[in-house]
Design a protein around this nucleic acid. Structure first.
Lengths: 226, 226
DNA sequence: CCTTTTTGGTAAGAAATTGATAAGAATTTA
DNA sequence: TAAATTCTTATCAATTTCTTACCAAAAAGG
């Protein structure tokens, strides 16, 4: 998903902002008029919009109103006119911030990041990636595992091991990779790994000695699949 | 709950803002220095703070940093100096907006309302006036705890710890996160945390050594659940 | 096929880590 | 200074993690 969409009829400004923001790892694109702006918003679903008040024959305010009919995406207005009326209009129709030309790139970036932060924070609560297999449910966010509705008590190490396998589901993982990714630099023996795999199977598989999900890749390692 | 707290060492400005905002149905109070500001924030729990950068012998930035140790309440900076550095500093330490003197009252009101709107929207999910578990009742607003009808005397630190756990109920909190969110940057040892957890359990759990609500997540942290 | 070799599974227990507890010291507040 | 609060430390108990020895299954070689 695109982070930042700039809508400005002055290509120079739009490009300058784009380049500057890109330096700070904000993905950026721009549109140069009302129509292109609307289209870009619909297609790219930007996380924040920088919107010039002056868009040639139409105003950014009009565009903002149009967008607000369907979306609550945060909008930061950029204006050449430092008037109270403009600022009030910007907030009045649902703008999130207002900056006047000439502005400092750094300040614009700071404002944009502040807006982004606010919005991604409140969204982080909504998203709950979860995976389920058999009668088991794994919440990757809360890092909790349920089985048949009951919480499964996984030891911290077992949890890390399971999550790593699930993150790479469908892909065979060598023992070496597991040791490196789950154990880091505290080296343990090969046999130890198989013990932990067994513990996971005992807690999650219906038939631990005929595993359906945590499979053995003979001579190499293990793979999670569901 | 107070909507807007103004912290400015210039009483005239503070009062002017207060009166203006009151005309538009925003409840408003003000504080005139660093200490009074901190106290007012802790006691009144404002929904938004208007913070003057210049607070006599201390800066609003310092106050903001202090507040950010424990709270995410939105802060709008007011500055007499229209410099890029100030604006960047404001956003850098967690400010939500920035306005320079002289400003239009209407614009300030618009900014404030915009910030309030954003935050009441996202908080509407969180907001939980009271919660009860076992024979305990916790009023999140008044920050009071009752047990079997009798008030429980929790020490300030214990209360903060409990409230943080409850705010994140059902979600395991690592010890690191607790130390960061409850203690801020006054670092304490791991063992100390477990002592405070025990105190909470002794005051709130029927069987403190078999806690039903304040659970231990082994190797990681704690979790409140009911 | 059968045997040998290699590799993974299993079980039990030792070692290490982590949390709970209690008592008291240090710090803050009134 | 006294009282309340908060922190540290030492010790104990619980839990997790690792190792090891032995067994079973799979691959390799004749």
């Amino acid at each position: 998903m695109l982070e930042c969409l700039i809508i400005d009829d002055d290509i120079n400004i739009a490009e300058t902002i784009c380049e500057y923001f890109s330096l700070f790892d904000l993905s950026c694109e721009y549109a140069v008029d009302y129509e292109a702006g609307l289209k870009a918003i619909a297609e790219k679903k930007p996380a924040v919009i920088l919107l010039d008040v002056n868009l040639g024959n139409q105003t950014g305010f009009e565009l903002c109103k149009k967008v607000r009919e369907t979306s609550e995406v945060p909008i930061i207005f950029i204006s050449a006119r430092n008037t109270v009326d403009d600022a009030l209009a910007a907030f009045g129709i649902g703008g999130d911030d207002y900056i006047t030309k000439p502005f400092s790139m750094a300040v614009l970036l700071a404002k944009t990041k502040a807006v982004l932060k606010r919005n991604t924070l409140s969204q982080s609560q909504k998203l709950q990636p979860a995976i389920s297999f058999g009668d088991v449910e794994v919440d990757m966010n809360l890092e909790r595992v349920m089985r048949a509705g009951e919480p499964v008590k996984l030891k911290p190490l077992e949890l890390r091991l399971l999550l790593y396998l699930i993150e790479n589901q469908g892909k065979p993982i060598t023992k070496d990779e597991l040791l490196e990714k789950v154990w880091g630099d505290t080296f343990i023996g090969d046999g130890t790994l198989s013990v932990h795999i067994r513990h996971l199977r005992e807690k999650l598989e219906a038939l631990p000695n005929e595993p359906r999900f945590i499979k053995t890749i003979w001579g190499s390692g293990y793979m999670f699949e569901c």
